[in-house]
Amino acid sequence: MKEKIQKVFDSLSTVYENQVDDSSLYNTQYERPGMLAEVKQDLHGKKILDAGCAAGWYANELLLRGADVTAVDISPQMIAATKRRIGDRGKAFCLDLEEPLPFHNSSFDLIISSLTLHYLQDWTRVFAEFSRILKSGGEYLFSVHHPFMDINISENKCYFETEALTDIWNKQGKEFEVPMYRRPLQDIINETTKAFTLTSIKELQPTAKLKELNAESYQYLMNNPHFLLIKAKKR
């Protein structure tokens, strides 16, 4: 499954690099505003890991706020796109988050992970590594699919199971089969609190601007939560 995930995001890298920032209202008016509201405007002196950087939008935003940014992703094509976006202002590496990470203990002040964890099967090992490389008191901020979203594409509808799913995305007139894992809410919370102290949970809501741009999408998201935001701190 991991190989399939890498291949599909290699194929989607052009879409992420050239279209998502402008055309995906779920990103621009939903997930990104919610995430950035939890990040300080002035990040000078802060070392941040962008874990699952895709085409580098968050890496660039964090750099603009003054951070020292390291971006990682399993897709070589996404890393290539990130490098084109950030140049030599930050670092970008092709890495598997489910493997040991090549960073020293207590390397980062913040780890941010946008819509990445639902592509990973083993959260226990990933979170243990994130805890290891975070400084004492460092923060971990991530967004993930809301369990209410993914249960809709589950065949067996067994909410309390963790299961592999395949979603169909339509991009640039093509269909992409995107593998992922669905988890119940209690597993998301329990995995987080094994390694971190939970700070806040937010069921993201769309911006008022989305209501102006697309009232139907706004109302749909208000009635059908898609993304969950978790903020935690290293003990």
Rank of each mutant, 00 (worst) to 15 (best):
Q41M: 10
G52N: 01
V39H: 02
E31N: 03
R32G: 00
V39C: 04
Y30P: 06
M35S: 07
E31L: 03
G52R: 01
K47S: 14
E38T: 11
G45Y: 12
A37M: 09
A55K: 09
A54S: 15
A59K: 04
K47R: 15
G52P: 00
Q41W: 06
Q29G: 05
C53D: 08
L43G: 14
E31C: 04
Q29H: 14
K40D: 09
Y30H: 14
G45H: 09
L36M: 14
G45C: 10
P33S: 05
A37E: 15
L49N: 02
G56V: 12
Q41I: 09
G52C: 02
A37T: 05
H44Y: 14
R32A: 06
E31Q: 04
G34P: 06
G34F: 04
D42F: 07
G56R: 13
L43M: 15
I48D: 00
K47L: 00
D50N: 13
E38M: 14
P33E: 08
V39W: 00
Y58C: 03
A59Y: 05
A59Q: 03
Y58S: 01
L49I: 06
A37I: 06
W57A: 05
R32I: 01
K46L: 12
E31P: 00
T28E: 05
M35C: 08
Q41A: 13
Y58G: 03
V39P: 00
L36R: 08
M35W: 01
T28L: 07
L49T: 03
R32H: 06
P33R: 04
K40C: 01
D50L: 10
D42I: 04
E31V: 02
C53L: 09
A51F: 14
K46C: 09
K46T: 05
E38A: 12
K47D: 07
A55L: 06
G45Q: 11
A37G: 10
Q29V: 04
D50F: 02
H44G: 13
Y30A: 08
E38G: 04
Q29C: 06
W57C: 00
A55Q: 07
G56L: 12
T28A: 10
I48T: 07
E31R: 04
L49F: 09
Q41G: 12
E31A: 02
A54F: 08
H44K: 15
